[in-house]
Write a protein that binds this DNA or RNA. Structure first.
Length: 395
DNA sequence: GATCCACTGGAAGATAAGGAAT
DNA sequence: ATTCCTTATCTTCCAGTGGATC
């Protein structure tokens, strides 16, 4: 046996169960949402066209898993009942425009990629492909907020009225973790979409625990992971974003650490270490793509946090921000815009803002604070070259 | 309870960059 | 090459908001 080989089989039984792509077989924690999706799609079995559906919720709340489960379920049912019902799953990550999505869908349906043809032609091919599928076709568009034009969402609902599609009845399930996605749609799209929304609220710790237990059963060797470790991973994830994906990452990494260490148990100590590693990676990942202005706003919040001044009002953050901007020779932008940047950072989940009434003179005000670990955030920001001078002002 | 005022968020428009059309 | 269009970012302006203050 090679001296470099690490025997992971003493810890893991099936690692695939812990990977991102894995779709669980059941999701009792999302029963309500599954029922709602089912109710909407059921009209397809009665000759109707299901309403368009949007699934909202932060990352790791089981939106994609739920959609996939129902899709498989209903396709099996359609087969059984002899109904003409098809689902198409399309992820939009890595695609920027409706055009690219349409190309990708056409390639999936016909094996031919229309990329390069003019938009009209690509859409026609798409409609022809849908017609040849026929019956009720439900297109699931995952991470739909990645697309920055709404042409497809505008076209699809009226394709039938315009005579582009004759055979098929098309409905859309859009999945988005950006709750402001619908606000950014143009009014005419909103109008024609006639959509229903289903919300996926963050998991609580007592929902995460059974989710983890089911994964542990399949992924790990029996008895290797004790319940205290599972509880710890669930607690970490619950107090952060309530994301099942994150909880599973902790668990997987903890198993990793145990395997690489030749330990025969996954312990709470492994889980603690895993949490640190995973969080650092998350912060690094979300900070990397930020603009200079985002960074500065974040450093300002971080600086206030390190002085124990948080949660701080926009005004306070802004005054720190202006000093920082001077420090690194960047243009200082208006407070109105910095507030927008702070709200964007909030959406990414790296800071959190609360809008509360109060303050010296009343009215509603934003209060900002870091939602990631202070030490880790400082460490990660320290590695951003552009910010050297700004970071040196923090303790 | 009238007034104050620090902050909010929508709107309109300026500016710059990138792409497509001519 | 030039013009036009789109998109993103930012500024400026301003009508609310609602607890604090008198």
């Amino acid at each position: 046996m090679s001296q470099y080989f690490v025997d992971r089989s003493t810890i893991f039984e099936n690692e695939q169960v812990l990977e991102e792509e894995y779709t669980p077989e059941d999701l009792p924690e999302r029963e309500t949402q599954l029922e709602e999706i089912g109710e909407t799609l059921s009209s397809a079995f009665n000759g109707g066209t299901p309403n368009n559906l949007f699934l909202y919720g932060k990352a790791g709340q089981g939106k994609t898993a739920s959609a996939r489960m129902i899709a498989d379920d209903f396709e099996a049912l359609a087969e059984e009942k002899g109904a003409d019902f098809t689902t198409i799953f399309q992820t939009c990550s890595g695609h920027k425009s409706s055009y690219q999505i349409v190309c990708s869908l056409v390639e999936y349906l016909t094996g031919e990629d229309p990329n390069g043809l003019r938009a009209r032609k690509a859409y026609d091919m798409f409609y022809d492909a849908l017609d040849s599928v026929g019956g009720t076709v439900t297109i699931i568009l995952d991470e739909i907020d990645n697309i920055n034009d709404d042409t497809l969402l505008y076209e699809l609902p009226r394709a039938r009225d315009n005579g582009h599609i004759e055979e098929a009845q098309v409905s859309v399930i859009g999945i988005s973790n950006d709750s402001s996605f619908q606000d950014n749609l143009s009014p005419k799209v909103k109008d024609s979409l006639n959509e229903e929304e289903i919300n996926f609220p963050p998991y609580e710790a007592d929902q995460l625990r059974p989710i983890l237990r089911r994964r542990v059963e399949k992924a790990f060797v029996d008895g290797v992971v004790n319940d205290a470790t599972i509880r710890l991973c669930a607690a970490y994830a619950a107090q952060d974003k309530g994301s099942a994906r994150q909880a599973i990452r902790y668990l997987y990494r903890a198993g990793d650490l145990a395997a690489n260490n030749d330990d025969d148990r996954v312990t709470e100590e492994h889980a603690r270490e895993a949490e640190e590693i995973v969080d650092r990676k998350n912060i690094t990942e979300s900070i990397r793509h930020l603009t200079v202005q985002d960074h500065l706003a974040l450093v300002a919040v971080t600086a206030l946090e390190s002085e124990g001044e948080n949660p701080a009002r926009t005004r306070q953050v802004y005054s720190v921000y202006k000093n920082l901007a001077r420090e690194i020779d960047a243009d200082a932008i208006a407070m109105r815009r910095v507030r927008d940047h702070l709200q964007e950072l909030d959406m990414i989940g790296i800071i959190s803002g609360a809008k509360k009434a109060g303050g010296s003179r009343g009215g509603k005000h934003w209060y900002w604070e870091l939602s990631t670990d202070l030490g880790t955030t400082i460490d990660v920001l320290d590695d951003v070259d552009r910010l050297d001078d700004a970071m040196s002002t923090i303790v």
